[in-house]
Amino acid sequence: MSRTWLSGTAVAATLSLCLATAALSQPITAQPSDTVLASFDIVETKVVTRKDAVVFSTRVRGKAGVDMPTATGKFEGSEVYAYVWPTSLNSAEIGFEKDQGIVALAVTFHPDFDDAAYGGKNRHKWHPHWVVLNEDKACGAGLKVTDIPKGSTPKVPPTWPNVPLLIDSPEYPTGFKGNVVNVEIPLKLLGGIKGASYDGVTSGLKVNGNLHAPLLCVSNVFKVASGNLSLPGKVAPAK
């Protein structure tokens, strides 16, 4: 796969800084790039409110969702592909303790394991997650899904999939149509979403081969809608 790479330090540092510096812009548009696989080459991303829902949407140069990781037959070392919307939401908004890291909605595919709520199966389909990200230099792109230390009992949402990560597995309607992927969430579940900042990212993640923390790393970044993870988008009513 041809990929656009960002340094791990730049990804983590810029994403952390941008929460306080995002400017008005909706939607975020990007120039197509032949160096990025078409199904992950973001050309537009937006988060809008419509009546009683908030809709996360990303449009790519090619057909969305057509490219998926190759199954390895084992959990350790397996890969995840994702369409991601980093936001300025607080982790308390999605059911975790407050101020735990960078909150992002992700639509993922991973053929080697299930992480649905209540023991459900989801390895054979694209599906949504909330994740809380933090910097970790051990990861290829400098970010990880935040680990839950062994023996701790943090606050988690009802649809937490019982894995040692700050990850949630809600069953939001998720759709792929042509070059667009979107997720629709009831507005009542996201009280702080109006006016929140966001960006769009396509990325790969990888499970640690030794199953130690960091357990799930952002291993590479395919494309960032803003180009610099500055979260320039502002959630607003659809036009």
Rank of each mutant, 00 (worst) to 15 (best):
S2N: 11
G8K: 14
G8F: 14
A10T: 13
A13C: 05
T14I: 08
L24S: 07
S25V: 02
Q26S: 03
Q26P: 03
P27V: 07
I28M: 10
T29Q: 10
A30T: 12
S33F: 08
S33H: 10
S33W: 12
D34S: 11
L37R: 08
A38T: 13
D41V: 05
D41S: 04
I42T: 03
I42K: 01
I42Q: 05
I42C: 08
I42F: 10
K46M: 00
V47I: 15
T49C: 03
T49Q: 10
R50W: 09
R50D: 07
F56S: 01
S57R: 13
T58I: 10
T58D: 04
V60C: 04
V60Q: 02
V60D: 05
R61L: 15
G62E: 15
K63D: 09
G65W: 15
G65R: 03
D67C: 05
M68S: 01
A71M: 05
T72I: 12
K74F: 13
F75E: 00
F75A: 00
E76V: 11
V80M: 10
V84K: 09
E93S: 11
G95V: 12
Q100I: 07
G101H: 08
I102M: 08
A104N: 04
L105T: 01
V107R: 03
T108S: 04
P111I: 12
D112I: 15
F113K: 02
A117E: 12
G119R: 10
G120K: 02
K125S: 01
W126R: 03
E135C: 08
E135N: 00
E135K: 09
K137E: 07
A138N: 07
G142A: 13
K144N: 06
D147T: 08
D147E: 12
I148P: 00
K150Y: 15
K150S: 08
P154N: 09
P154M: 04
P154G: 05
P158Q: 08
W160L: 02
P161F: 15
N162C: 06
I167K: 06
E171W: 11
P173L: 09
T174I: 13
T174F: 14
T174E: 13
V180M: 13
E184Y: 14
P186E: 06
K194D: 06
G195P: 09
S197G: 05
Y198V: 03
V201I: 12
V201D: 03
V207G: 00
G209V: 05
G209W: 07
A213S: 13
P214Y: 12
L215Q: 04
C217M: 02
C217S: 09
S219F: 13
N220G: 04
V224K: 07
S226C: 00
S226E: 00
N228T: 11
L229Q: 01
S230D: 03
L231C: 06
V235I: 09
A236N: 09
P237H: 07
